[in-house]
């Protein structure tokens, strides 16, 4: 399957001259979930932030459906079909749930705007009942769902999710990941940055492991689950099991 998102040899960092990501590469096909794993400080979040346009890039290339991403500001990357959901502060707390969604719906064509907004709400019944409330009053899981719903309203080709399970109960993580699987089944490529390795391996089609800003391992979840190197990366020594 041809890749929608192609990242090649990306070098990125917050401060000029001090990159956090060195030579990182990533390919995501439509409908594929790629889990981006790695120990703390590996540069996973920095890599997807750089692809989204929030972290300066000093080398490499990134394209979506053949169109260069790096020459475009963050908001134009969204228009090309790239959606990014941050780990924290991923909703506008002082805006209502409906206004959070309307922000994305406003950017699409006027025709069918209301229907798109209602369809996004319908995907997440938990937030549909709270559409008039301030997003700041939602629980952590509901905020994640609202942020994903808002990202979907932009009609993405590829969705970048930064640790969506952080701080959520296992039950909510299960629900959220089931929705992410459904989104991918609809043809959207997903990059999932996760610390919850077991949950990520359960949902991913392919896994890329980043260490110190560089690709270290790559394969299917089945291949990597058997690879002692993955456990070694997380707990510091070779082990038979995959860390939770």
């Amino acid at each position: 399957m041809s890749a929608a998102l192609i990242v090649d040899g990306l070098v990125a960092g917050y401060e000029p001259g001090t990159p956090i990501v060195f030579d990182a590469s990533l390919r995501v096909a439509p409908g594929e979930i790629v889990a981006l794993l790695g120990p703390n400080g590996a540069g996973k979040s920095t890599l997807i932030k750089a692809v989204a346009g929030l972290v300066p890039v000093s080398g490499g290339a990134a394209s979506l459906d053949g169109l260069d991403l790096l020459c475009r500001p963050a908001h134009r990357r969204v228009a090309l079909g790239l959606a990014y959901v941050p780990q924290i502060e991923n909703v506008f707390a002082t805006l209502s749930v409906e206004d959070n969604l309307a922000l994305a719906a406003d950017l699409g064509p006027r025709e069918g705007r209301r229907q798109r907004l209602l369809a996004a709400l319908a995907l997440f019944p938990d937030i549909e009942t709270r559409r008039g409330e301030l997003a700041g009053r939602l629980s952590g899981g509901q905020r994640q769902m609202l942020a994903v719903a808002r990202a979907l309203l932009a009609g993405p080709r590829v969705l970048l999710l930064d640790e969506p399970s952080a701080g959520l109960s296992p039950k909510i993580v299960g629900e959220l990941f089931a929705r992410i699987r459904a989104i991918a089944n609809g043809g959207v490529g997903v990059v999932l940055v996760e610390q919850n390795v077991r949950a990520a391996l359960a949902i991913a089609d392919r896994v890329v492991v980043l260490v110190q800003g560089r690709n270290r391992l790559e394969g299917t979840p089945a291949q990597l689950e058997r690879d002692p190197a993955l456990a070694a990366l997380y707990i510091g020594r070779p082990a038979s099991g995959v860390p939770a």
Binding site: A52, G53, L54, P73, A74, H75, V78, A79, A83, Y84, P86, E89, N90, V91, F92, A93, T94, L95, D99, A102, L103, A104, D106, L107, R150, A154
Partner: peptide
Amino acid sequence: RQMRAVAENPSLAQVVGID
């Protein structure tokens, strides 16, 4: 809505697609 969003969180506003 965009003005209120930018007032609260300009980084998030960018990745939502707001200029």
